[in-house]
Design a protein around this nucleic acid. Structure first.
Lengths: 212, 212
DNA sequence: GTCTATATTGTGATAGAC
DNA sequence: GTCTATCACAATATAGAC
């Protein structure tokens, strides 16, 4: 996404057409996925016409790619931030869960979007991730320090990490079921549910991994 | 797919055209979703031509609906089965997790498929679910007995249930990431990972909810 | 019931005026 | 840069022969 007109003086964070398009595309793609999105709808959302989309981004594919990379980076939890802190285990988990669920509350469509596109073109996206420099080694280091201190039960770090992410992310994917069926379409009730979860999930994890 | 009529003698599981179509449609829809699927591809998969699809099912929509309802029922965990057993809590959780992950291993595309379509038409599908008679009350009863026995910590049943499902389902949605990045595209390693999970997830849950 | 051929509509993309 | 008009093709759906 460097297509940006070079060094023109940009007096204000003025909404250039390109940025407007990207915002509109993000909204539409996030909600409907690549295949469910229509260039016309993005144009409407940006209040311009289709031709302009192709003028700025040659194709739907290009426009999508400009969106996806940023979205994926946002979805990846900021592991190193937790890793590098010197907080006690309990605080680390609490901080991570709260921060991650907060992010998802601000981007509720992100999880399904990412999973959907991963399913559509797994290999292409794996290449992208590798290009971005995501290293499995980082994951291995996640709870290393804690383990050495014998503060947690012996669960493989990969499983532990997957468990934590699962507990945070899944409710957003299953939202239509939870909100629609369990809470009878009461959005307020679902938001309360998410709010409660921040503490409950952290406690759940701490309980699960603490040696008794 | 009433599957195996128990012990009826099945002279030949005669493959009527309609059933062949349904099988082909299931395969394609499950993998690519409604919007990503093409009638032509389903026809190819069934080794017939497009026109026949429309002869049996008037439209793509109809064909899809014939698939979705069954898939959704399969996705819903069989809660009452666990509920009605008289096993100790530990065994209940173990049995549930193993059985549910087993089912997902046999239908790895199910989770993303369901979530994707829920996102596409939430209201329509909520209506379907209600028609099918899913009752929130069932959920409330889930761990009621255990709670009365004070065997578990006080976590709201809804959260507990969501946690359990999350831990089972999410890895299948994130499969491309886990298999592709963590396990370097080694399918065998990912399957081992799933195998381990059956016990690890059950332990994780038990640990989390057991009073110390 | 099953096929081929065709109609119809939707959608990404381009040409060309301004 | 932005627009209108249009192309080209893909995809659902139907007509009609057999």
């Amino acid at each position: 996404m460097k297509i940006n007109q070079k060094n023109k003086i940009m007096p204000d964070p003025i909404l250039t057409t390109e940025k407007i398009i990207l915002e509109a595309a993000k909204k539409v793609f996030l909600e409907k996925g690549f295949e469910g999105s229509r260039m016309q709808l993005i144009a409407d959302e940006a209040d311009i016409n289709k031709a302009l989309l192709h003028y700025y981004f040659r194709s739907k594919d290009n426009l999508f790619e400009a969106i996806f990379e940023e979205a994926f980076m946002q979805f990846l939890p900021n592991i190193s931030q937790v890793l590098n802190s010197e907080l006690p285990l309990v605080d680390k988990v609490n901080a991570f869960v709260e921060q991650y669920i907060n992010m998802l509350q601000n981007n509720p469509h992100l999880p399904i979007f990412i999973m959907r596109e991963l399913q559509r073109e797994p290999q292409r996206i794996i290449e992208l991730i590798k290009k971005l420099g995501l290293k499995p080694e980082l994951i291995e280091a996640f709870f290393k320090k804690e383990k050495e201190k014998n503060q947690i039960v012996t669960i493989p770090t990969t499983h532990l990490l997957v468990n934590i992410i699962s507990l945070c992310v899944f409710p957003f994917m299953a939202r239509p079921i939870i909100e629609g069926i369990v809470f009878n379409n009461d959005k307020e009730a679902f938001n309360n549910f998410l709010q409660e979860r921040k503490k409950l999930v952290a406690d759940f994890i701490i309980n699960a991994i603490t040696v008794k």
